[in-house]
């Protein structure tokens, strides 16, 4: 009998899993807060160039994006680099109306702080990039950011 009792005492009590949902909920809230859903579907392939001297873009709401790269669907649109604004392909002439629209979407006080982030594929020729930059200058969008991958 004594032997039997000894064994009983050794048993490890089951770990309570009651707080498991709480832990998971905490994680959920973390991801819910940090998540940002992709708003645009990419129609151009972009492999950003690498650089080391990068600065973080603050205030994501004050950034408008211009994508330039070869179309994802090469069979349909060829391999020539194209500009993408919002969800569709655009020409250089469309940039000024695009920037105007982006400005109208922001509060008046924020408009001068609007930054244009240029996400450009590393193989794009500078000719197109220069054209885009000229358009941006014409409409007064002087703050730009060349988006890059952070290298070592």
């Amino acid at each position: 009998m004594a032997k039997f009792r000894k064994n009983e005492a050794k048993e490890v009590p089951a770990i309570s899993t009651g707080s498991m949902p709480d832990i998971i909920f905490m994680l959920i809230f973390f991801f819910m807060v940090t998540t940002s859903m992709r708003e645009t579907t990419m129609k151009v392939k972009i492999k950003l160039p690498e650089a080391t001297e990068v600065q973080k873009l603050e205030k994501k709401s004050l950034v408008s994006f211009i994508y330039i790269g070869p179309p994802t669907n090469a069979k349909l649109y060829g391999t020539e680099a194209r500009i993408q604004l919002n969800d569709s392909y655009a020409r250089v002439d469309d940039i000024i109306p695009f920037i105007e629209q982006e400005r109208l979407d922001r509060a008046e006080a924020d408009r001068p702080l609007l930054t244009t982030s240029l996400k450009i594929d590393e193989n794009v020729r500078m000719g197109l990039v220069t054209d885009v930059k000229q358009e941006l200058r014409k409409c007064g969008a002087f703050r730009i950011n060349y988006s890059v991958r952070k290298g070592e």
Binding site: K56, L57, R137, I144, N145, Y146, S147
Partner: peptide, 11 residues
């Protein structure tokens, strides 16, 4: 987090 090289275009 978007990062890149920030520059100012001239008027």
């Amino acid at each position: 987090t978007d990062s890149g090289i920030t520059r100012r275009l001239p008027p």
